[in-house]
Amino acid sequence: MVVSGGTSGIGEALAHTYLKRGDRVAVIGPNPDKGKSFLAAAADLGAEERAFFIRADLSLVSENERVVQEIEERFPVVDALVLCARFFRSYRRVTSEGFEHNFALYYLSRFLLGYGLVGLLEKAPSPVIMNVAGPGVDAGGIHWNDLGFEHGYDGWAAMFQGGKLNDLLGASFAAEHRGYRTRYVLNFPGGTATGFAGEFDPATAARIQEMLRYANPVEVGIAPIVAAIDAPPAEPLSAFFEGRRLSTRLPSFDQQEALRLDALTRELLAR
């Protein structure tokens, strides 16, 4: 199992769950201290030989490409890819490669890791990509002419757009013409008490604290994710929101928009 954002929050909880069950787990994160903590916890479980930490800033295209190469060199197969890395920003930030940070981390990274590791996933008996996002949300929209929010940036709008981009990513990945065996699952388990990573203005910080008051314990939050990893749905694409299954015929998964986004993404990366 490979888990992006696996040193904190839901990703960390999933990583420890599967280590305890005897699986090999590689987590990706930017903080070396959190990586050491993950490996130390694995050692306490007697699982040090099954735990791996890959340090990377996944907001950078080059780092995602390096991670894919490292995983290909170290592991013959990947059974599950879990995509959790996300970081809320109240204030707009651009990466050194020229991409708006939320767009780069929440969407581009998931695009690059999914397609980059699909060769190893296809070798597994029941491969799955678990994209922990926010499928089917009506709020906001896609700013097709300004994906990086150069004009009128808003942290919540950027986050909601990221969720919609991931819906279309799932639809494109699972399209019939690709022919992958790998199942693509979009899953929002609801608010969990693991925190909410980000850099907040005062109003947003207050809103986050209020949300956390009603959040579920992490063991409750990860239960439906674990279930879908262990027994991936038969359909190429499936989506769940707080335990409720969504129709993939919703506008969020429109095939024409998915193809449009896929072409635009590849054009941006080619530049």
Rank of each mutant, 00 (worst) to 15 (best):
H151M: 12
H151E: 15
H151G: 07
G152S: 14
G152I: 09
G152A: 14
D154C: 11
D154N: 15
D154Y: 11
G155C: 06
G155T: 07
G155W: 08
G155S: 08
G155A: 06
G155L: 07
M159G: 04
M159I: 02
F160H: 06
F160N: 04
Q161H: 03
G162V: 05
G163L: 07
K164N: 02
K164E: 02
K164W: 04
L165P: 03
N166Y: 02
D167A: 01
D167Y: 00
D167F: 02
G170L: 03
G170V: 02
A171T: 03
A174P: 05
A174G: 10
A175R: 15
A175P: 09
E176T: 12
H177M: 13
H177S: 15
R178L: 14
R178S: 03
G179E: 14
R181H: 12
R181D: 15
T182C: 08
T182W: 09
R183A: 08
Y184K: 05
Y184W: 09
Y184Q: 02
Y184T: 02
V185E: 01
V185T: 06
L186Q: 04
N187A: 10
F188A: 02
P189K: 11
P189A: 09
P189T: 10
G191L: 14
G191R: 10
T192F: 11
A193F: 09
